[in-house]
């Protein structure tokens, strides 16, 4: 089953497996993010958090042995003809997450834990049950929910009714099986909730597929609450949302850059190494759809690099060495920035 989901990440052009996996695992180094940009999978950033890289690489090896993937250059794989057929088949039979992009800017996992306890507390409270085992003993999560309850200043029965209505509104937007999976997974009064394994048996799917479904439903729910900010759980979600996927430090560097574009000056002002400033700007360029490349890249560099790579349409396969052979003074930063710009242009074209 994991192999099926891994196969869906590959295409008919070579993709760097480690790069793609690290995007999904939430690694935010520039090289990982760049791999995500070229493989067009940045919207899955951090959605497979906690999944072991070695496990994923072992799956790739199995897919290769099964002749569904083939390695063209070291570290990169692409679909074989059989792989393409299998992928097409999976696209119609396997559950495809719809809202994993929420992981980019929202701490969905934290919300999952906090909301789980909040729903349990309200469910038990609405039934006036004081003796129950809380779903988590994490003191941070417990404190957050206590604080939320205090500030909501509403009787449990009222909160119960409101939560019933809000969940009902959200779940009616879903397919009935998905709504059932969502509700059966909840823990509350006299209902401990079903495990992924139990739901898998009930719905004749694999536990991993149920895991994907439940993660995706959580993302969909989070996005729904974001659109309905009068709902009772909004105060629990609001602090977990960031304006952008860009890290705070990189964002600050970018703000300084907007005031004046000289990287040396930015480094002095921000008290950072020059290399760090450059990494921050590359991270922003990758994650920000309308990054002002022209303010950094001189037209001379753009012209030179355009000439060097004009015969090579696959931007991801460009080699820095090739540019450096002709422009020995060129720093890797400018090459990578140009590469990001071209990737973006490809995507928008």
């Amino acid at each position: 089953m994991l192999a099926d989901y891994v196969l869906l990440l590959f295409s008919t052009t070579p993709r760097r497996a480690k790069g793609v996996f690290n995007v999904l695992r939430g690694r935010r180094t520039v090289s990982t993010l760049f791999a995500g940009l070229t493989a067009n999978c940045l919207e899955l950033l951090d959605s497979w958090h906690g999944v072991d890289l070695e496990t994923l690489m072992a799956v790739v090896a199995t897919l290769e042995a099964d002749q569904l993937l083939v390695s063209t250059t070291e570290g990169s794989w692409q679909l074989t003809l059989a792989g393409q057929k299998r992928q097409q088949q999976l696209q119609t039979t396997l559950y495809q997450p719809q809202a994993f992009q929420a992981f980019q800017t929202i701490d969905v996992r934290r919300f999952e834990r906090v909301s789980q306890l909040a729903l349990q507390v309200i469910s038990e409270g609405a039934h006036a049950e004081k003796r129950y085992y809380p779903v988590t003993s994490d003191p941070g999560v417990q404190a957050t929910v206590k604080q939320w309850l205090r500030s909501s200043r509403q009787p449990m029965t009222v909160l119960g009714k409101r939560l019933y209505e809000t969940l009902n509104d959200f779940l009616t937007t879903l397919d009935s099986d998905l709504a059932t999976i969502f509700v059966m997974g909840l823990t509350g009064y006299q209902l401990p909730g079903r495990t992924d394994q139990q739901l898998a048996e009930q719905f004749d799917r694999q536990p991993l597929e149920i895991w994907m479904i439940r993660k995706d439903l959580m993302c969909q729910w989070v996005l729904w609450i974001q659109q309905h900010q009068t709902e009772p759980l909004w105060p629990l979600l609001a602090p977990l949302i960031q304006a952008t996927a860009i890290s705070q430090s990189a964002w600050q560097t970018y703000q300084t850059f907007l005031q004046q574009p000289d990287v040396q000056v930015i480094a002095r002002q921000r008290k950072l190494k020059l290399s760090t400033v450059r990494e921050h700007l590359l991270e922003t360029a990758i994650l920000m759809p309308d990054f002002p490349f022209e303010r950094l890249l001189s037209s001379a560099v753009v012209t030179q690099l355009t000439t060097i790579f004009q015969e090579q349409s696959d931007v991801a396969s460009w080699q820095f060495q090739q540019a450096q052979d002709q422009l020995p003074e060129l720093d890797f930063f400018w090459f990578r920035l140009f590469q990001i710009m071209r990737c973006r242009q490809e995507v928008s074209a």
């Binding site: 729903l119 309200i122 469910s123 609405a126 039934h127 006036a128 029965t157 119960g160 009714k161 939560l163 019933y164 969940l167 009902n168 779940l171 009935s176 709504a179 059932t180 969502f182 509700v183 059966m184 909840l186 509350g188 009064y189 006299q190 209902l191």
Partner: peptide, 13 residues
């Protein structure tokens, strides 16, 4: 049990 019934069981006393 339908999901709507379960939801009601959870939150409506």
């Amino acid at each position: 049990v339908t999901w709507t019934q379960l939801l009601a069981q959870l939150f409506l006393p």
